[in-house]
Design a protein around this nucleic acid. Structure first.
Lengths: 97, 97
DNA sequence: GGACTACTTGCGTAGTTGCGCAACAAGTGA
DNA sequence: TCACTTGTTGCGCAACTACGCAAGTAGTCC
């Protein structure tokens, strides 16, 4: 087993994850990426925002370790870095119901 | 069963829950309340902040439906309104690890 | 009523966030 | 090299957040 008591740093990191998930556009991104890789322009079109804005949202998710990116030519594909994010999101939805 | 596709409102509400959990002091509150009811002054002492500040954090959690309060004489006791919040918090910690 | 405790609310402020827009960087292909 | 596409970064601004502090509210006890 690992630590049982949540250390300050673990709590802080959990807060950062929660912060990254605290925007409905970013949650929408998580939903899309749950289906598979998506490019920045795909996501911005689906969600209905400008590309720079989407890029910033993705940067927030990336800094939280929620998504990862891969470049192919001049398109950048994003994917979920950790499938457990979906579990966390589902639990948030349960609480939100 | 209820809705399978996350509606806009469900997503928005999940974002509100995540926002409420996006502060380490509030996560600390959730940890304390997982052990049982606590008064505002108890929480502010344990967490090390002023009472008005704690009251505001509790208001955020209350508006998100995460905690509920009960008055007994002068003291107001807060408790977790939904035990599933703990599940969500644990999942956030899993992702944060 | 008056003094006291416990909590909430209002206010001002410094810091942060989300957004639009412009500029820049990275890659492709003629 | 030039034009083009795709993302990222910088900048300015309005909105929001966390905090400290003062003031107000709710309840107890004398």
């Amino acid at each position: 087993m690992t630590a049982t008591l949540p250390s300050d740093t673990l709590r802080d990191r959990a807060a950062i994850i929660a912060r990254a998930l605290s925007d409905s556009k970013r949650l929408c991104v998580v939903e899309r990426l749950a289906e598979g890789e998506r490019s920045v322009s795909d996501l911005s079109r689906d969600i209905g925002c400008q590309v720079p804005n989407m890029s910033q949202h993705l940067a927030v998710l990336r800094q939280a370790g929620i998504v990862a990116s891969r470049r192919e030519g001049n398109t950048v594909f994003y994917r979920l870095a950790d499938a457990r994010v979906l579990e966390a999101y589902r639990m948030l939805q349960q609480v939100a119901r």
